[in-house]
Design a protein around this nucleic acid. Structure first.
Length: 417
DNA sequence: TCTGGGGTCCTAGGACCC
DNA sequence: TCTGGGGTCCTAGGACCC
């Protein structure tokens, strides 16, 4: 489906051309592409290998017909669609699809921003044949990534409007918003939160000031928006008029990660300190492995939890740079004990930020640390080869059966340090 | 037995240094 | 004789995205 919102003055006005390309039901269609038996069926991709206390990571078109949506609690999805087929997500599979996708996109412009695992912006010169480029991208995705994979493409004169355009028709849509007149026409027909940058909270706050759509928003003076939203007031002011000056951040400039974290929702709420400790150890070990794989060290550890009532606390502290799971754990555990109010815990999370490249000066080459580093390196090697937590800290043993289930191959190949 | 998990960016205030 | 100005780092907290 192709749709063009036009004011009729396109050629006089457009200075930039941005395409937003977004896969439809990404994880779900990739699974259906990989396994033909899933095609035409309502499937829901899940994060882990369980269905309690989790949400739908992606729903196929067929599942969407039942009202199943991304982010919906699994129990709710199953109520709407009892025959929903649950598929365990496989991030490596999705990443390899993303790589193929990017290699196609790169043929059309060097100016590509990777916005998420299934979404890019690309800027082409304002005189390019945008429409035929878009159709060509769609064709090549089907040919080179998979016949079952479709994408929606939005074309406009800035990023925000291109993304909005792309969201208007799914799946397999192609929508153009030519200029600011056309943009206002579209904006006046969508909800406030349909634009990237206005979420639940800001929508609520705008509603409280009597603003329920972009027409209303355009009537609010800039000063009033600045007064209640600070610098973001300007952004809101611009959005309502279809203005956005933000530039494409080419992906090679965006490579460095800013933080690495993990969080985990427990099978049941608990106030058992040993249980929480084990989870935290596991999470910090995974974080450290990721840091080492990326050759990074980090300084600031934050830890937070969520209680049964969904409220929680968090805190962060800065420690000497590290790459060692045990050091990250010690910091996280210290924080946890400081912030925990004895409520039953539903979820704990920990993350490390303030990252920098690992280099000889950054790593502490003291005698004792050298020994630790050698041990860590050996553990990493073994775990790379045989799977996560083949070799693990003794305190984690109590949780070993979780991983035995996940990786039956390793059932009798378990060692403890 | 209601609501996952991985991230990013921004603001504001305080400590500390030169 | 009163108390500048620039800068960095740290923490808390709020918002957003997929």
């Amino acid at each position: 489906l192709i749709f063009v919102f036009s004011s009729g003055y396109y050629h006089f006005k457009v200075q930039r051309l941005i395409l937003h390309v977004d896969f439809n039901s990404f994880f779900a269609t990739v699974e259906q592409q990989a396994n033909p038996r899933l095609r035409g069926k309502p499937i829901g991709v899940t994060g882990g290998d369980r269905m309690e206390r989790t949400v739908v990571g992606a729903a196929s078109v067929e599942a969407k017909k039942f009202g199943v949506k991304t982010g919906m609690p699994m129990w709710e999805a199953l109520k709407l669609c009892p025959d929903l087929i649950l598929v365990k997500g496989d991030s490596d599979k999705y990443l390899s699809v993303t790589k193929k996708f990017l290699s196609i996109i790169k043929d059309y412009s060097p100016n590509v921003e990777v916005f998420s695992i299934d979404e890019v912006f690309l800027e082409i010169s304002a005189r390019s044949p945008a429409m035929s480029i878009a159709l060509d991208i769609k064709r090549r995705i089907k040919e080179e990534v998979g016949e079952y994979i479709t994408c929606s493409i939005g074309i406009s004169y800035n990023k925000v409007m291109a993304k909005l355009a792309g969201s208007l028709y799914k799946p397999d849509g192609l929508v153009v918003i030519e200029d600011e007149e056309a943009a206002q026409f579209v904006l006046d027909r969508v909800e406030l939160n349909e634009i990237c940058g206005i979420g639940f909270r800001i929508k609520k706050r705008l509603n409280n000031m009597g603003v329920f759509n972009f027409k209303d928003l355009r009537k609010v003076p800039l000063e009033a928006l600045l007064a209640s939203y600070k610098s973001y007031g300007q952004t809101l002011y611009n959005m309502s008029r279809g203005i956005d000056h933000s530039l494409i951040t080419p992906f090679f400039e965006k490579e460095e990660v800013k933080s690495v974290g993990h969080r985990h929702t427990l099978f049941h709420d608990t106030s058992d300190l040993l249980e929480i400790k084990q989870v935290l150890l596991k999470l910090t070990e995974l974080i450290a492995r990721k840091l080492r794989a990326k050759k990074l060290v980090g300084k600031t550890v934050s830890c937070w939890y969520r209680s049964s009532n969904f409220l929680g606390e968090g805190m962060q502290i800065t420690i000497p740079i590290t790459q060692d799971g045990l050091e990250i754990f010690k910091a996280g555990w210290k924080i946890f004990n400081q912030i925990w109010n004895q409520d039953k815990i539903r979820m704990v999370g920990v993350s490390i930020s303030n990252l920098r490249p690992q280099n000889p000066q950054n790593l502490t080459f003291l005698e004792e640390n050298l020994r630790q580093e050698k041990i860590i390196k050996s553990i990493d090697k073994i775990n790379d080869k045989f799977g996560e937590f083949t070799l693990q800290r003794g305190i984690l043993l109590g949780t070993a059966k979780v991983y035995r289930k996940a990786n039956p191959f390793l059932a009798d190949r378990r060692f403890t340090l």
